[in-house]
Design a protein around this nucleic acid. Structure first.
Lengths: 136, 136
DNA sequence: CATAATCCGTAGCCATTGCTACATTTGCTG
DNA sequence: CAGCAAATGTAGCAATGGCTACGGATTATG
């Protein structure tokens, strides 16, 4: 009865830190988008975008400042650090590829948008390359 | 300066409950797999599979019992309820399709396994249908 | 069948991400 | 420039999912 159980490919022990990384990716992407669209990014802009309270945003922004991804002073707009900007560009590119890929695959735009936002965080470099190849 | 910001396709307000649902899906799938492979599923089997402590598993199993997905008595194996079994079958089928899809797309098996475990939870019915079609 | 090994539960800690309620700062406007 | 509205911060609570340490239950074994 002692068959050994194979461990999961993606260890669950990293679940919490993975979720935190996903949040970071979502936030830097959103901050970059808002700065592009309206010149600055406020805490309440993020709150409306993510449909959460400003308190949640405020705390996450603080954490991402500690991680050197964002910068802001109290009651001031949120900005990207160089590190955050670099990450945001990568995330945005990956997101766009995943979205275009799903549409090319035949998924309607609405569902492609919804699913791409969840899928993007789990697309590794090999899968991303395969998607790019498919798009060409 | 008052451009309105579009809300995200997948509201962030559902983040925590979405993560909890993903956990539920992972657990019922793992329980079904273990019962198939070795006849029963113990808390420690799940702990080893997910690379977490037995305490974490124990608490999650308790929550999933409250949600009528799992059943077990103290110091006893974990079993699926009818509801849990139904969910597990759906999750397993979706997982297999995503994995086969990534491999068909040209991703190596190792990376396909890793990415499919993250991606599967975010594949809606429309995307799943598109993947099925691609496989045929 | 007694004892050890293994399994599992409980207590209690932390981090992340939700929330409401309340306080403070900023900035617009009369 | 006074005062109000909007934006942001702080306090403190809950749920989820990590952990270690400890103790009780079950099972295996001599």
């Amino acid at each position: 009865m002692k068959d050994k159980i194979k461990a999961r490919s993606v260890p669950f022990s990293q679940t919490r830190s993975r979720h935190a990384s996903e949040t970071a990716e979502d936030y830097v992407e959103a901050v970059m988008e808002m700065i592009e669209e309206k010149g600055e990014c406020r805490v309440l802009d993020l709150a409306r975008y993510f449909n959460v309270s400003h308190v949640t945003v405020s705390r996450i922004v603080k954490r991402l400042q500690d991680e050197k991804l964002l910068s802001s002073r109290p009651y001031r707009p949120v900005a990207l650090t160089a590190k955050g900007f670099k990450l945001a560009k990568q995330v945005k590119e990956r997101h766009e590829i995943v979205l275009a890929f799903l549409i090319e695959l035949g998924v309607d735009k609405t569902n492609a948008q919804i699913d791409s936002e969840g899928i993007e965080h789990h697309v590794g470099s090999k899968t991303l390359a395969a998607m790019k190849k498919f798009l060409k």
